Simulated scan of single mutants.
Amino acid sequence: MQTPTPAHTFTQRISATPRGARLARRLTRYHLDGWGIPYDSELSDAVAQVAAELAANAATHGRVSGRDFALRLLLLADGVRIEVTDTRTECRPPERPELPSPDEESGRGLVLVAALATRWGVDARSVGKTVWAEVSPPGG
């Protein structure tokens, strides 16, 4: 499916580390605010959470030593598309993430993404993959 022409875009390569994942969240909020989606709005909170989860997964599961991941944000007429591209081809997220047991310390990121996003998926690349999600405004 073709992505509609965005009103605004932002793309940044970020180090595949926990610090890089935090930076992805901050950059997301910053650019959303500049595009007219205020800090602490429901849409800003949801998009920032999705960006943080996808970036954390790229830094944890998609990490290849010495390689960054890319964060791309697109402001669309009906919401925001978040794309995170890493360089690890063989490690793909499950199509239907399941909630881990209560005693597990991780494994909830894609469950959150699936709950907050209107839709999400994975696009294969010759090297790596792009995990993307689209978030619509509440009631949108």
Rank of each mutant, 00 (worst) to 15 (best):
residue 1 M to Y: 08
residue 4 P to I: 03
residue 5 T to M: 11
residue 6 P to Y: 04
residue 6 P to D: 03
residue 7 A to V: 08
residue 8 H to D: 01
residue 8 H to Q: 13
residue 10 F to Y: 14
residue 14 I to A: 00
residue 16 A to N: 02
residue 16 A to R: 00
residue 17 T to S: 15
residue 18 P to M: 11
residue 19 R to A: 14
residue 20 G to A: 07
residue 21 A to M: 05
residue 23 L to K: 09
residue 23 L to H: 07
residue 26 R to Y: 10
residue 26 R to V: 06
residue 27 L to V: 05
residue 28 T to F: 08
residue 29 R to V: 02
residue 30 Y to F: 15
residue 30 Y to D: 12
residue 30 Y to M: 14
residue 30 Y to S: 14
residue 32 L to G: 02
residue 32 L to E: 00
residue 33 D to W: 11
residue 35 W to C: 05
residue 35 W to M: 07
residue 35 W to I: 03
residue 36 G to N: 13
residue 37 I to T: 05
residue 37 I to A: 01
residue 37 I to Q: 01
residue 39 Y to N: 07
residue 42 E to M: 13
residue 43 L to C: 07
residue 44 S to T: 13
residue 44 S to A: 15
residue 45 D to Y: 09
residue 45 D to V: 11
residue 46 A to T: 02
residue 46 A to H: 03
residue 46 A to C: 10
residue 48 A to M: 08
residue 48 A to Y: 03
residue 52 A to D: 07
residue 54 L to Y: 02
residue 54 L to S: 01
residue 58 A to T: 04
residue 58 A to H: 04
residue 60 T to G: 11
residue 60 T to S: 12
residue 62 G to F: 02
residue 62 G to V: 00
residue 63 R to H: 12
residue 63 R to M: 06
residue 64 V to Q: 08
residue 64 V to Y: 04
residue 65 S to A: 15
residue 66 G to P: 02
residue 66 G to N: 11
residue 66 G to M: 08
residue 66 G to F: 12
residue 68 D to C: 14
residue 70 A to K: 09
residue 71 L to R: 02
residue 71 L to Y: 03
residue 73 L to V: 04
residue 73 L to S: 03
residue 76 L to E: 06
residue 77 A to R: 08
residue 77 A to K: 05
residue 79 G to N: 02
residue 79 G to P: 00
residue 81 R to V: 02
residue 81 R to E: 05
residue 81 R to G: 00
residue 81 R to A: 04
residue 82 I to W: 00
residue 82 I to S: 02
residue 82 I to H: 02
residue 84 V to W: 00
residue 85 T to C: 08
residue 87 T to W: 15
residue 88 R to N: 12
residue 89 T to H: 10
residue 90 E to Y: 12
residue 91 C to Q: 11
residue 94 P to H: 08
residue 95 E to P: 03
residue 96 R to P: 01
residue 96 R to T: 11
residue 98 E to F: 09
residue 100 P to Q: 14
residue 101 S to G: 15
residue 104 E to G: 03
residue 105 E to F: 15
residue 106 S to P: 00
residue 106 S to G: 06
residue 107 G to F: 12
residue 108 R to W: 13
residue 108 R to C: 09
residue 108 R to V: 14
residue 109 G to L: 07
residue 110 L to Q: 01
residue 110 L to A: 01
residue 110 L to F: 15
residue 111 V to C: 15
residue 113 V to P: 00
residue 114 A to C: 09
residue 114 A to R: 13
residue 114 A to T: 11
residue 117 A to R: 04
residue 120 W to K: 01
residue 121 G to F: 06
residue 123 D to A: 14
residue 126 S to F: 05
residue 126 S to H: 12
residue 130 T to H: 05
residue 131 V to N: 07
residue 132 W to G: 01
residue 133 A to V: 04
residue 134 E to W: 04
residue 134 E to I: 05
residue 135 V to W: 00
residue 137 P to V: 02
residue 137 P to A: 10
residue 137 P to H: 06
residue 138 P to I: 06
residue 139 G to H: 09
residue 140 G to T: 06
